[in-house]
Design a protein around this nucleic acid. Structure first.
Lengths: 208, 208, 208, 208
DNA sequence: CATGAATGAGTATTCATTCAT
DNA sequence: CATGAATGAATACTCATTCAT
């Protein structure tokens, strides 16, 4: 005899909310905001639709909540993996390592952030943009520090530093999810990026 | 008899289609697939809704047609700007130049491709993915050529070459639209990327 | 052990029910049946929602109970103020006095009966209609008595008597709530109505 | 063979809108705002639901449109029947005649205005209140004129005049719909009201 | 009995899409 | 082919209501 009827188990609100977010992240990531219906999410969470609305207000807010949670988690994971106070290249290296590991382990979350939440139509495109800006600024600071420590560079305009950071972040985003081996991916990117940066800082720019 | 009606004089089908696509690209790029209604597009194109359906079948097909056209145009622009037969770095340089110039001059098209068409939910995500693969493969070939020409490299695994290409493409995408000065942006990216690559090929990898 | 919980000490059922009805009357009167939610009422009553259901079964029954209570109270107040056995005009006068005083002192109840419960959609529209019929009949009787006592009237058809009563009741309803001074309002209405009636009974009808 | 398929006949928008309003007035009047669903209305109008929304925007706006139309029609009917420039009692008499006739001939419209649109919850309760105020003011003016023309009255305070008008309007509303014979009903009310008023103006108030 | 977790059953609303003229 | 009248089919959202603790 089934001990469990049709009704969902009684569970405290905080827990249910996380379950719902889990389900929603997964469905949104796979099918996109538009194609996802609230019924699907409710079913995936093993819960009735009104409960989803009771806790998360609306489809937009639910999506935003997913994005916020995943963004926070990713951000925290990266931050935690950065060796604060180390040399800039070490900081970048450790940060990338954390980034590639986390995204590899949480493909749904990453796909939500990178593949869904950024597109124009989605709610909370701002949310994501803001997180990205934060990251770009962190990298900008790293490169800036390295630039100041380097001896004999002509000058590296702020605009250029920021562009380098933007490029680096874009490269990392592009690589995320392409390999299960975070260490290798991070190494590749460091080779690509930091070594090139080294040349630049040493006064050996590439020229056409 | 009026020679000129209120709107939409007699015009050959091919032209009309392009007008519609122009309008659609612009609206889709600004408001996203989801938020855009067929009425809006018909109005923006100065054409009646049934005509849009007659020529372009459905919203999805219309969107796909937009994406395909823009992807083809971008692809052609880049291809045209590449100095075929030149050294790999020259080819990359010229290609990037073409890319940044074209995207700067066609912000709607670029936003459509990069900001809207890639999201999971959108139809023709494949279309875009395919174009991207094509580009990545082109860059992969460039890097591969350079690697083979370089003298004393340990070995550069195919997987690693592809990852480098992926990183480079991601970096370029990330930079596109960030500046009106295509030449400067391209130079920054070359400094960043190719110089790093040079170190790598010369057997001076970055190491943690 | 706490003698006093956060809310809702032990209280006999009858009392609790009245508290709930008080709250419900107030909320229904202000926001209408449709706009009022059971949560609002439970909160206003300082009671948990299940208790509301335990005692009052459903939203419709709750509304009906409110209406019934208020109707009964109004009816009783009016009846109590009527000088039974006096001359018809004295009876009417005293009844109106009671009516205007009671409605002025219980605006929520009056608004519930007059402004909410009568609309077609509301449950217990019958309840209210019944009370109204009762009152109309009472007034009909008064006028009938006066008519029989009056000397030289041609004939006053039953239908006409009833119409007069209906008019009088409508006039009273229309005036209720328009002034805080019950006595003045009642006087105005008597002047308006009974005096006209007097003419009629004396064989001096208005004629076009 | 049916010449008429399932689709509704092609009909110009203005006509369809009136058909919809006809249907909506009828359904709203019978079942009330809350109990009425848009499906019902669409079906009653012999039309699909999206068309209702296309033309009338929302349930609230549809209801409001109904009320506005009925209010305007009633108002116009009454205004048209008033003998402008005649003596106050003639004006009132003719107005009442028009009122009772119109409401008797349009029971749905009247029930909508009187029975549904006035209750607190309904949208456009203001709409109706405004119309009522307009009418009350018209009657107030009539009585005021009569009062000024009457010779030897103590004084009739403005407040009192307005109260009399309010009573008269309430009485009329209460009688509307109670009889098919508008002329008789109007006569009854004139007897009741104007004759009483006559006494009052002649300095013979009723006194307790 | 208080609490708050949970839901069945409906509702308004909005698309993309198609005919008839 | 332009026009605008018309709709099928979904989807977000809400409410009164109940049950386990």
């Amino acid at each position: 005899m089934e001990t469990q009827g049709k009704r969902a188990q009684r569970v405290p609100r905080a827990v249910r909310e996380q379950q719902m977010l889990d389900a929603a992240v997964s469905v949104f990531a796979r099918r996109g905001f538009r194609a996802t219906s609230m019924d699907e999410i409710a079913e995936a969470a093993g819960v009735s639709k009104p409960l989803v609305y009771l806790y998360l207000k609306s489809k937009d807010e639910l999506f935003t909540a997913c994005v916020r949670r995943e963004a926070k988690a990713l951000s925290a994971a990266v931050r935690a993996s950065v060796e604060a106070g180390a040399a800039p290249d070490r900081q970048l290296w450790s940060g990338l390592l954390g980034f590639f590991r986390y995204t590899a382990e949480h493909p749904d979350g990453w796909n939500l952030l990178y593949g869904q939440a950024r597109s124009g139509g989605a709610p909370s495109a701002d949310e994501v943009a803001a997180m990205r800006v934060e990251i770009v600024e962190f990298v900008t600071a790293l490169i800036g520090t390295a630039a100041r420590e380097a001896p004999c560079v002509p000058v590296l305009a702020d605009r250029e530093v920021r562009a380098l950071a933007l490029a680096l972040v874009g490269a990392a985003e592009s690589l995320a999810g392409s390999s299960a081996n975070g260490r290798e991916t991070a190494a590749t990117l460091m080779n690509f990026a930091w070594a090139g940066l080294g040349n630049l800082l040493a006064g050996r720019p590439w020229s056409p």
